[in-house]
Amino acid sequence: MPDNLPDDLQLLKQMLAKMQSRVGFLEEENALLRQRLQARQKMRSRTTSFAVQKRLR
């Protein structure tokens, strides 16, 4: 956030809208990255479980 905010109300509103838009984008990106990570962890868990079962046979 800028140290010196402008006195112009319209400019402040534009800055706020831009920041809110950016936050929304980052929240969506974060959610997608979390889904990918969980899928990767689930896949790794399945692979490990399969390898353990295979060794036990």
Rank of each mutant, 00 (worst) to 15 (best):
11 L>R: 10
28 E>L: 07
28 E>N: 11
37 L>Y: 07
48 T>A: 15
10 Q>E: 15
12 L>N: 14
5 L>D: 03
14 Q>P: 03
14 Q>G: 00
43 M>P: 00
29 E>D: 12
8 D>L: 06
46 R>T: 05
15 M>Y: 06
3 D>V: 06
33 L>V: 05
4 N>D: 11
47 T>I: 04
57 R>I: 02
57 R>Y: 07
53 Q>K: 12
37 L>C: 11
18 K>M: 12
46 R>G: 00
18 K>I: 02
18 K>L: 10
1 M>F: 07
5 L>M: 10
4 N>I: 03
32 L>G: 11
13 K>D: 11
4 N>C: 08
18 K>C: 04
55 R>E: 08
8 D>R: 00
7 D>Q: 09
35 Q>D: 14
26 L>Y: 12
8 D>P: 01
42 K>S: 07
52 V>K: 12
4 N>M: 10
17 A>K: 15
41 Q>R: 13
34 R>E: 12
21 S>P: 01
37 L>E: 15
47 T>L: 09
21 S>M: 12
31 A>W: 01
5 L>C: 02
6 P>D: 00
46 R>W: 02
7 D>I: 04
19 M>R: 15
31 A>C: 06
22 R>V: 05
6 P>N: 04
16 L>P: 00
45 S>H: 04
50 F>P: 01
20 Q>L: 15
1 M>R: 04
34 R>N: 13
34 R>P: 00
32 L>P: 00
3 D>H: 03
53 Q>W: 08
20 Q>Y: 08
56 L>Q: 14
42 K>R: 07
18 K>Q: 15
50 F>L: 14
8 D>A: 03
48 T>G: 10
31 A>R: 11
30 N>Q: 14
3 D>N: 07
26 L>N: 13
41 Q>E: 11
42 K>H: 11
51 A>R: 12
6 P>Y: 00
6 P>M: 01
54 K>C: 12
52 V>Y: 04
7 D>W: 01
21 S>G: 15
4 N>F: 03
48 T>D: 14
46 R>V: 03
19 M>V: 14
5 L>A: 02
16 L>Y: 12
